[in-house]
Design a protein around this nucleic acid. Structure first.
Lengths: 344, 344
DNA sequence: CTGTTAGCGCCTTCAT
DNA sequence: ATGAAGGCGCTAACAG
């Protein structure tokens, strides 16, 4: 049996407006009625119906989270997981909830399919949107619509390199820390380095390589651009054989701890000692993730969880019309030296 | 500017009911009006307001997912991640979305705080709920309410050992495969085994130990019950020193690949060879996760993703009043032999 | 096949 | 301080 504001009102012997006032404490109500209403609410376990409330207020207290890069990778790549953790944390204390929006598979029916996250916005299911990884096709196809939405002032925060002048934005210095990784290795005397990058970052690749070539011209970089965020183990095995054993790379840069772990396992299999025979430098998105491996791996720490927190807070502030003093927040990357790099 | 069904109707020169009928294709409409309406919908980028629709139908096409064990662990333990993947997959093709429900921190204000997932149910935000890990306090405190909801026929599927006769349920044979792990080791000649279990599984511990003692009496089990789903590295280091080096365990059972990875790294640090000096047997929730390590670790595979799929499908079938032939699905665990166990 | 209309549950003026 | 009443956008009878 569904209980509505009416039931509460009648049990408490007041009108529904009084109940409503108490719910939203939008006016003072006499102590007596107050108590009666509270009693009735508890009695019925009353909770206001969100459809009705939303119909009036047009707000759902839900925010959408859309990471396009394939459903599975969201739950495998620690970068995304840390972002989610951060977002989740904010949701918990701000009394919002997050809706994970996944692209619905085949909607062949309509040719020009509206992506789900736009649908959710127009349907008012969500009060705001957190986006990351806009290199994905489904978004590029709809870039104009996304922009339009941002321009209309719809609350959107984008995590990553800014794609549009409007909207809120949170990012780390991807290009910069990739260059710094090479610098670190150069400073330890390395000259030939194997560098992994994900194809989804391919719009960064040129920038990174150009800067390396101009700023650190004496380095020989072997670039491996791969489809996913981390490589299947047997590919990595081949890569190590090719670039470390055959071509003589003395160091490898991993994109994340997942990569680093596989690299270490492959090296163990090939009986290549780290760091004695090959050095390893990684990126870590979870703080101290590098200490879980052996040897502990030196890393650039990208504070992904903080970025998630920042994104969510920014979004909610904006939604609730609070002051948003910055529309774009940059997060610092920190180098943590451990024991996986050998000084040549 | 918000566009409503009325705008569409007037531009198409029809009544709102005609538009509604087309939206829900709930009756046949003349070709001509059909086209006019479609045109108007595209023109306005019309999407039906979910509040209004929900107010009428009392259904949101969202399902709640609540895993109590602390927000962070959800995004760290591959068991939960695989469940999420499975659920997510179903959401995508069933046109539902999932709301991750996290306990809101301190709501000291009300003493007897209604947990958020119950709130969401009563507020009609979600059409059904997927729960896992009910050992958590916040749920135990509200066990009566949860049961009441299940008895009222509210759609809930519980992932794990059934806690109540009502409701839908999906589970793996936790007790059984834990015993089988010990059997596998016994069959390879091991007599002293270090076994990790999570505190959140402590209601299983007695059952597992009793069965081991009665079915495999010649084994000496050292049980380590830990707070989280996987141990901090330095704890593991101490454990290995204590149980393997000092007390002479010849094999270790890990609760998941996260554990196994740390164990391998610790063994590397202590220069203990796997499997030559100590054998390792793990549980894996992601298929073939054990092959990413070196040596590849023998595992009991728990099909967590399939369980997530099963849970979500069961739930949606139930919500949509389709036939639910089984109310409880058991998933088989599979032993995969690799290279981490030495025959003594 | 199509239009008119009565709510769905809540919030919010407007009176009192 | 409180109650009555209109309307948010949509669906589903009901009438034609």
């Amino acid at each position: 049996m569904e209980v509505s504001i009416r039931d509460v009102a009648s049990r408490a012997g007041v009108s529904i407006s009084t109940v409503s006032r108490i719910l939203n404490n939008t006016a003072t109500v006499s102590e007596k009625k107050m108590l009666a209403v509270k009693e009735a609410m508890e009695y019925y376990h009353y909770e206001p119906n969100q459809f009705a409330r939303g119909l009036k207020k047009q707000t759902s207290n839900m925010i959408g989270v859309y990471f396009p890069n394939g459903a599975d990778s969201i739950f495998e790549v620690s970068y995304y997981l840390e972002l989610l953790k951060g977002i989740e944390k904010v949701m918990a204390y701000q009394n919002y909830s997050m809706v994970l929006i996944s692209e619905s598979k085949e909607t062949e029916s309509r040719k020009k399919h509206t992506p789900k996250y736009l649908e959710y916005i127009r349907q008012k299911r969500i009060d705001g949107l957190i986006l990351s990884g806009l290199t994905n096709k489904s978004v590029e196809d709809n870039a104009d619509v996304v922009w339009q939405i941002m321009e209309e002032g719809y609350p959107v925060v984008y995590i990553g390199k800014r794609v549009h002048k409007e909207g809120l934005n949170v990012y780390a210095q991807f290009e910069q820390y990739n260059v710094q990784m090479i610098e670190v290795l150069r400073n330890s005397g390395h000259k030939k380095v194997l560098l992994f990058m994900a194809r989804s970052h391919n719009h960064y690749v040129k920038g990174v390589m150009d800067r390396i070539h101009s700023e650190i011209p004496d380095m020989e970089i072997f670039l491996r651009v791969t489809d996913s965020h981390f490589e299947p183990r047997d590919h990595v095995l081949q890569d190590i054989k090719e670039y470390v054993l055959r071509r003589g790379c003395t160091a490898v840069c991993a994109r994340g701890i997942e990569d680093a772990q596989i690299l270490l396992s492959v090296c163990a299999e090939l009986q290549i000692k780290v760091p004695e025979q090959v050095s390893l430098l990684s990126v870590e998105h979870r703080y101290d993730a590098g200490t879980l491996l052996y040897p502990q791996v030196s890393s650039f720490y990208v504070p992904a969880k903080d970025m998630g927190v920042g994104a969510a807070e920014l979004l909610i502030d904006y939604i609730e019309n609070r002051e948003v003093n910055e529309t774009s927040i940059e997060y610092e990357t920190k180098y943590i030296e451990r024991n996986s790099i050998r000084r040549l």
